[in-house]
């Protein structure tokens, strides 16, 4: 089973996670920019974070044979702090980078006017930089938030096929399916979505435009739940080809729309694998 995790916050994960992911078939990841638990207070903090997502983190992933790409954006939560609005001016420079395969995570947290503005501005950036968009849906008031999200996406003029709407569940999946956007599901140990529920959703909605991710971060989460979902699909009678479509070909197709996805094998010689990280740092 080869796995492309289309949404995982590796910055918050350990090197042991990379090792376990590689051992279980995870060969590619996309890390969306999001918040870090502690709110940031200035654009410089974001610049360093973005630099890490296109510098250090892909290098760290490559030590384990995992390809790492990023999506960059001002996330909805921090879009509410006026001190962070300057991040929108930083983004154009970063959206030109090779490792950036979408604008994201954008969308809503508390559905404020500041979030409206940042969301619309960043959908416009996605259009002008010819990038797909990864859209987060709120944890509170999710169904209303998802409807409003889809309205803003439609108003922006971006093609629905270039938008993934994430963190869906049984209540919100139908709305997104009907919009033409991609449907993202974050498999969590207890909350958002579980492997058995994911199996039922794929039984009901098929494998087209479905993205399954672990969204693992600094909270209670598990980077191997994509693998568990693949096993659950096989146990429920789906074919290996179905599983490959959901866990590999779908994310390749979605992020491939950026024209920047590089899935050439990592070459250990070029990165001096077995060096500092494997040895415990310098």
């Amino acid at each position: 089973m080869r796995i492309f995790d289309p949404h995982i916050h590796m910055t918050s994960r350990t090197t042991d996670d990379y090792r376990a992911m590689a051992a279980n078939g995870v060969q590619a990841v996309v890390e969306p920019a999001f918040w870090l638990g502690q709110p940031r207070t200035n654009p410089g903090s974001f610049a360093d974070y973005f630099d890490s997502l296109i510098g250090w983190e892909p290098y760290r992933a490559a030590q384990f044979g995992i390809r790492h790409h990023a999506t960059l954006a001002l996330n909805p939560k921090e879009a509410n702090d006026p001190r962070c609005r300057g991040v929108l001016d930083l983004l154009p420079r970063y959206l030109d980078k090779d490792g950036v395969v979408a604008v994201g995570e954008i969308g809503y947290d508390s559905m404020t006017p500041a979030e409206d503005e940042a969301f619309a501005a960043q959908l416009a950036l996605a259009i002008s930089y010819e990038l797909p968009a990864l859209v987060h849906t709120p944890h509170r008031d999710k169904a209303a938030g998802t409807r409003r999200t889809l309205d803003v996406v439609a108003e922006s003029g971006i093609e629905p096929g270039r938008v993934a709407v994430d963190h869906l569940n049984e209540v919100t999946v139908g709305l997104v399916r009907d919009s033409g956007c991609w449907m993202g599901f974050s498999i969590y140990p207890e909350t958002k979505m579980s492997p058995p529920r994911m199996v039922e959703i794929i039984k009901a909605y098929g494998t087209e435009r479905i993205l399954v991710n672990s969204a693992a971060d600094w909270g209670h989460s598990d980077p191997l739940l994509t693998v568990e979902t693949g096993k659950a699909l096989l146990a429920a009678g789906f074919t290996a080809d179905d599983v490959d479509r959901v866990l590999w070909r779908n994310p390749v197709e979605f992020y491939g729309q950026s024209g920047r996805l590089d899935l050439s094998e990592t070459t250990p010689g070029a990165t001096f694998a077995g060096s500092s990280i494997a040895r415990g740092g310098s």
């Binding site: 250090w56 990165t271 001096f272």
Partner: peptide, 9 residues
């Protein structure tokens, strides 16, 4: 100063 072997080299 980095820990990226490619940059150090």
């Amino acid at each position: 100063r980095t820990n990226d072997a490619r940059l150090v080299a």
